[in-house]
Design a protein around this nucleic acid. Structure first.
Lengths: 370, 370
DNA sequence: GGCGTGACTTATAACGTTTTAAATTGAGCC
DNA sequence: GGCTCAATTTAAAACGTTATAAGTCACGCC
């Protein structure tokens, strides 16, 4: 009578709908023992015993395999739901080789000020109703991101990778391309082999920023440039220069500071520069911290925002405008970027051609309500 | 002659040191096929074939089991190193039930401004030379942290948990205690059952902050209080009040704003308050963003830092002092906290009594060099 | 020479899945 | 009645690891 014997009999016909032999019912010890294994967590076997089906059938039914009759499919799903079955990820992973994990690599610079946070938020949303888990790998593995990528590929720690702050010939991207590992970058590269990416249109950002400064009557524009080695630095400076040349306004691009510099260095640079001759009166700040540092430096020189100078900053959170609402901003929606990256990565993992998986985000004027 | 047959023979004696039959050597196809499985990743079997030992023996040798002779132990380690063997975590996890994963739960508030980052950095350092991986679970699982904790316990997604921003009767802690799941909190609770924690001495922080303000001659002190529901809010206000009462200075504690408020709300509060009668001239700001917002609000009222008022802020990164070096700060070393939490958690997982696993961090005067 | 004993090594059975190949059945057909 | 066929269901073999229990040998002892 026990589920065990039933399953072993030659007769495979589904058991007379004696369904749902729950723990509360009195049944042979064997059955109970088999039904609830070591850990107490329900497994396929639990469901098999409960329904009188074979483990294989249960597995198939839950996987919505085509060969399973609608009746058993439904019954298995019901029972599974009732007892709160969740597949053991370790076992699935061992068997299939798929991890159901998406890994995000962050480097220390972007973790500051919620850059990473927003991206992750978007990613989490994209993966919400999928079997994928999101794992954030801070690049604290000594040796930096390249080693982390290598480790993840070699040991199959994830099915797909998200990375950002790309360089034109980013070694991480090269590694991933060589190994055919699915990934999406935030930022473009200059490899000829195409790969999936989402990028913000930093050309447009800088172009619009300069045009706005000029529209406000500013005569001499400058920018806190992103680190030269990052791809988007090129795009941004190109946008900057295009606007500058169109209008024929004076400009300068500092050589000694960039966005990744500590805030005090930026502040000091501004102070020094403003004390000199032909100081700029219009600034493009592609980061919130750099904008704050700039404002502080300016106010140290007794220069007033909106009076002696203007700033157009890139905004990715509420911080800047909440602290300093007089700054004009152009908004980069990182949450949307993250969500897009999630969807692109899923399609990439599903085997779509990387050449199709692109997205270029336009700068936004307004900031969505908090 | 093939490794397979050798292993099956009755004679268990280690093979004549014909060691290191590498792929480059010509050998029977069977052996090669067996040596490099499906995925190409070396497994215990690879090493077993290469050394002529049994899989069990190899496993034991790598695990430094006591019954293995020094000679084979060494040889196995050598071969493993040569071919770059790394154990399959999915298989280990399936077999042992241990995940070798430590999970960190962050909530959106602490991700801002590197609170989480520093903590994670410290954790990563503590886990560096252990088999444990660190997984950051942003609490974007709808339903918040409690559901996330529940999910992790139920599905055995980790061997231990790190969480922060505790409440006196934190439901997450209750859940973990009930299930006997190993964890360490950042912040204390008021449960009678002891649990592992690391906490910053916020009493001392607030006490010292007020004493410093008074030493500077300030007459009327206030504080941006942490959200009332968090445990450390009590500690901090207690420290604040203790200093206030010792000296008998005037004070006020705002009811309408707290540390988690958006920066603009804090700024507006300061502006309003400063316009009123009996405005404070000494402020305790237990967060960097709140300090910045406060300074902005003050400067909107034409009040000068170090002139009309002083601030003592809690510092957890370089941001604040780099932007606004005139602020006096007391430093909370979150990296050290993270590292401590990592070590405590490992000891907890190893079975040590939670009652012993505590640490209270004293406020620091200096900030370590960047 | 048989018999422990100690020092190693090994085969086997799990862990919970999925996959491959095989089984069972009733129906339809000759 | 035997045959194939389709529709289901099933058993058995993996995936890579570890734990349990069972060898295997050399050696010393009676």
């Amino acid at each position: 009578m026990s589920g065990l014997f039933v399953r072993c009999s030659r007769n495979y016909k589904p058991q007379p709908k004696k369904t749902a032999v729950r723990r509360s019912e009195k049944s042979s010890e064997t059955e109970v023992a088999r039904t609830v294994p070591r850990t107490g967590k329900p497994t396929l076997k639990t469901i098999a015993d409960l329904t009188g089906l074979a483990i294989t059938t249960v597995s198939r039914a839950l996987g919505n395999a085509p060969q399973i009759s609608e009746a058993t499919r439904k019954r298995v799903h019901e029972v599974a739901g009732e007892i709160g079955y969740l597949p053991d990820r370790a076992a699935q992973r061992l068997k299939t080789g798929r991890t159901n994990v998406i890994s995000v690599l962050l480097d220390p610079h972007e973790e500051i000020l919620g850059f990473g946070t927003s991206l992750i938020h978007g990613l989490a949303r994209a993966l919400q109703s999928t079997p994928y888990h999101l794992i954030v790998t801070p690049s604290f593995i000594e040796g930096g991101n390249v080693d982390a990528v290598n480790y993840i590929i070699r040991n199959g720690m994830a099915d797909g990778l998200i990375l950002s702050r790309t360089e034109p010939f980013d070694p991480r991207v090269r590694l991933l391309l060589e190994n055919g590992f699915p990934f999406v970058t935030h930022g473009r590269t200059e490899f000829t082999t195409p790969h999936a990416y989402v990028d913000f249109d930093n050309f447009a950002f800088a172009y619009q920023a300069v045009r706005r400064l000029i529209a406000k009557g500013r005569q001499r524009v400058t920018i806190i440039p992103p680190p030269r080695r990052l791809t988007f630095s090129q795009h941004m400076l190109h946008g900057f220069m295009t606007a500058v040349r169109e209008v024929g306004v004076a400009y300068e691009i500092p050589e000694t500071v960039d966005l990744d510099c500590p805030a005090d260095q930026i502040r000091d640079h501004i102070r020094r520069r403003m004390a000199g001759a032909g100081a700029p009166d219009g600034l493009v700040c592609p980061g919130e911290v750099s904008a704050l540092a700039t404002i502080t430096g300016m106010s140290d020189c007794d220069l007033g925002l909106g009076v002696e100078y203007d700033i157009v900053a890139k905004q990715t959170s509420h911080l800047l405008t909440q602290i300093q609402p007089k700054v004009e901003t152009i908004y980069e929606d990182l949450t949307a970027a993250g969500e897009a990256m999630g969807h692109l990565l899923l399609r990439r993992i599903a085997g779509e051609d990387a050449a199709e998986l692109h997205m270029l985000q336009a700068p936004q004027l307004g900031f969505p309500a908090p």
